[in-house]
Computed example of a mutant assay.
Amino acid sequence: MPTNSSKQVVKKTSGKMGKLLGAANMILSVIPDTVEIVGKITDKTAPIVDKHLDRQHQLKQSLVVIPNLLDVDIQQAKEHLEGLGLQVIVLLAKPNKRYAKADAGEVVAMMPRSGKVRPGSLVKLYYVDDYVIAESKKDIALPDVTGLVLSEAQELLENLGYRVAAFPIKPRSQYASVTVNQVISMSPNPRISLTPVKKGSLIKLFYLDAATKQVSRILRKSEQDKKAANAQTIKKNLDKIQEILPGKKVAKRIK
């Protein structure tokens, strides 16, 4: 027969189990409500997401492709961009050596240069005129014309706005095999000069003419003959030493 103490234990245990079952039932009853709430939120959010994606798609479809209009006439480039629904600002570019060979009135830079933009976006076009081109040519680096034929070197430098004076170079043996009228050196020397040479400056070209080449050949022949004579003299001296000292070997070095 159960005692009072055992009855109390059973009662407490039953009470705890009841509380646990009650909590479990509460959780189970809440889960369907939560799922229902999440579903409702998802149903409401889906149209918003779809609408956002549609807007992005429409935006991409409406973007205007900017073509590369470098080297195009500034007026034609402006009209073309305005025809695409874009705003255009025309600006005169500052002198730069990159524009030295450009034609007056052509586009030399643009911003943005290419890509896709929204309709009505602003595009800046930079162009050059005769003044900008003339100023840009002043910054051109002096080209190295050594090795060129004199006439070609003169034409190149004069087209760049330099004055040219040509002088025959002095004969030297190393010029014996150089082509006649070839530029041997120049002053100022672009490989040495650290400061830019301004347009209109005098450039001196030193070239090899026919007379200089002939003398250079004579000098080389003389040097070769002298070298051969020295080698022969050394050989004779070694032979004499060999005769005086027949029992010893003498190293022969002939250069």
Rank of each mutant, 00 (worst) to 15 (best):
V64Q: 03
A134L: 09
D239W: 07
E82D: 10
E158G: 03
R55F: 07
K170Q: 07
V72F: 04
T195H: 10
I48P: 07
R118C: 11
V197D: 03
R98Y: 07
K12I: 06
E152I: 09
S201P: 01
H52A: 13
A251V: 11
P112E: 11
I133V: 13
N25R: 15
K19I: 10
N96L: 03
Q154L: 01
P2S: 14
K248H: 06
S185L: 03
I31S: 03
D71E: 14
E82N: 08
I31P: 01
S177G: 07
K116Q: 15
K116P: 02
D129M: 11
D139Q: 14
K255C: 10
L122Y: 09
P47L: 06
I66H: 01
V215I: 10
R118M: 15
T212P: 00
K252F: 07
T13W: 14
L81A: 00
E79H: 11
G83V: 09
L202F: 09
F167Y: 12
G85F: 05
I234L: 12
Q87T: 12
E135R: 12
Q174I: 08
V64D: 02
E158S: 05
T13D: 10
V9N: 10
K213A: 03
V108A: 03
E106P: 05
V250L: 06
K204Y: 04
A109F: 11
L21Y: 10
Q76G: 02
E135V: 07
D71L: 07
R217C: 03
L160V: 05
P95T: 05
P168Q: 06
I133Q: 07
Q154E: 09
Q224C: 04
Q232T: 11
H52S: 09
V107A: 00
Y162Q: 05
A153T: 04
K170G: 02
P95H: 02
R191P: 03
I254M: 09
A211M: 04
Y99Q: 01
Q154T: 02
K97G: 07
S136P: 00
V38R: 13
Q174K: 12
